[in-house]
Design a protein around this nucleic acid. Sequence first.
DNA 1: CAACGTCGTGGGAGCGATCCCACGAGGTAT
DNA 2: ATACCTCGTGGGATCGCTCCCACGACGTTG
Lengths: 363, 363
Amino acid sequence: MSQLTIEDIARIAGVSRSTVSRVLNGQPNVRPSVRDRVQEIINSYGYAPQAAARQLVMRKTRLIGLILPDNAHHLFGNPIFAEIARGMSQVCAQRGYTPMLFIGRQDMDEATFFSLLRGRHFDGVLLISSDRQDRSAAMLREAGMPYVRVGHDPEDDQDLQYVDVDNVAAARVAVEHLIALGHRRIAMLKGLAKDVCTHARLEGYRQALAAAGIPFDEALVGDGDWTPASGYAWTQRFLDLPEPPTALFSSNDMMVAGVVRAVQERGLKVPDDLAIVGFDDLLQTTMIFPELTTIRQPCVEMGMRAAELLLDQLEHNRRERAQIILPTTLIIRESCGYRRRSAHLSPPAESATAALDDEQRAS
Amino acid sequence: MSQLTIEDIARIAGVSRSTVSRVLNGQPNVRPSVRDRVQEIINSYGYAPQAAARQLVMRKTRLIGLILPDNAHHLFGNPIFAEIARGMSQVCAQRGYTPMLFIGRQDMDEATFFSLLRGRHFDGVLLISSDRQDRSAAMLREAGMPYVRVGHDPEDDQDLQYVDVDNVAAARVAVEHLIALGHRRIAMLKGLAKDVCTHARLEGYRQALAAAGIPFDEALVGDGDWTPASGYAWTQRFLDLPEPPTALFSSNDMMVAGVVRAVQERGLKVPDDLAIVGFDDLLQTTMIFPELTTIRQPCVEMGMRAAELLLDQLEHNRRERAQIILPTTLIIRESCGYRRRSAHLSPPAESATAALDDEQRAS
DNA sequence: CAACGTCGTGGGAGCGATCCCACGAGGTAT
DNA sequence: ATACCTCGTGGGATCGCTCCCACGACGTTG
């Protein structure tokens, strides 16, 4: 039932290997009647060519490796990675590639990982990482493996091709929005220091404050770790301050879950007592009430663009530098208090990067 | 910098392909001095054998495919899958295999998926699925691909080897615990109907009620979908009942997040107004207060056992049937009200499957 | 009707490893 | 000294495909 080779199929069909191969690969110069007969035999025997043999001569596997920052935290903890992967998967599948996610890279030593890459199991790799300490990019380069990265470190600008958002600008827009709503004491929840975007978003926060002439207050910056638990803990500390903040910008949406809990446990209300703007626009945040005002990252599109870059690189041997920065959007809902407090403000639609949430979420 | 073959290394080292191959594979009969020299050359040139060529003759890839129910919902939505995968990954890595997760199977038609399996890219597959509609298991069998499944459908008992928990018994223990605490009106939140464990857990609920002589009330059974949102919605309906429940058993922990929100929004308290027992014991539920009483599934161990079964199957050609049912534990914390209400009750330690949460969570 | 393309087909070479066997050097037992 | 093993080494065969080229049949053109 197994183990059939192209030779067997050829014998059964009474043709040569070459002809079967042509049928298999959809090549021309096969009589239609022969093609049909061979195809039927292939189907009925459930034959599929052995990948290794094909790869050996073609030097292609049509497999794409996906690498995420490898801890359960990121991988399964934050749905934006799933969204990015979804975009990648769509493009790969459509162009005849199969994406495969590296699991448990932490269980593997560097040498093993390197051999895996050099072994040419994969035609290329899609790397999602904003992690500074992540050696993946360096190893990919060392192994001569084509890759495109989602996320970027301007201080270590070695990625030939990457896709990212402008985290500084996005954070600035978020905080400017809070400022426009009249807030002066605005807290900020950072992500992990190892992630590049953490610093970029902090920088955006600083720029917005500076532009409005609001002094930067160290006490209002919380050292979060992307999890709801850290949002919860820091919000408690913020609310205990002698002069607590009236607004808060969180570097991701997940932490907001903890923020809201802490606020409500004190009998306070969002947005009246604390206005909140998040970052990511997770679908899952529909569980947060009031509905979250947040910065939408075009996750699916980032994944798609990255995959397109990689496949173009593989198929047309495009090796020029490509840096794609996609726009983010401020999605205004309820948690910032815009609708309640500020009918007098100019509608945010004036900004190219802001939108009221009357639009539907992309499916 | 690239594209070196074993032949090149042999030439550089002044030895034959065979010798290089022996060094590569740690085989005996190589003079130590030669071995060292060859190894050094391999390292300095960053040579790694091309997987396809090796596979062709060895008929092994040392790659293990991982298949999860392929929607973002499961994959990234519920951390238990990450835990199971972690266990799998550990065992695989330790035994020299690399696990790779199938991404985006929904973007792929069945024929493509089948060819992927028949192409022998993977030595074997680990399948996590309690999904009745999932065709994966059938396709794996059809493709002659060795696999071990985590999860099991007794009504379609075709998996040669699987690992699971006794969902009926586990749910029964959970509900019996609530009954022992004096509850008579106990609601139950189901998962999706397509998942086998949904029905098993409902059955456990029924058995516990029946054993206590409590009539089954259709109105107390909610048709959840594993998400917090569904927990929220159903809890609202339960609390609106003329005779609302005093306790609730949720088929997973994620839904409990919504349950608790609904309770608290009405100014009610857990466990005083609604006692809750969950299922899974997610690490992430530390964000739920009061701390959640729940059924712990030994996720990491399930993954490890499944991987061990598969690798034994591959390496020793073990093909006998293996059905592993691992024990669950009732972890008693606060949300069931045990500590508060029932100092008079016999300590749950009497039960082999219950434990107070004074133990630490496994790391 | 000869010359020449095109189409359909088959067979040999080759991809880059591993594996098996042959063979010489050296040591030990006879 | 001869026979015999073991060890270290090299080279040919092989895995299952794809690719290239050769070749015959046929149709078109001059």
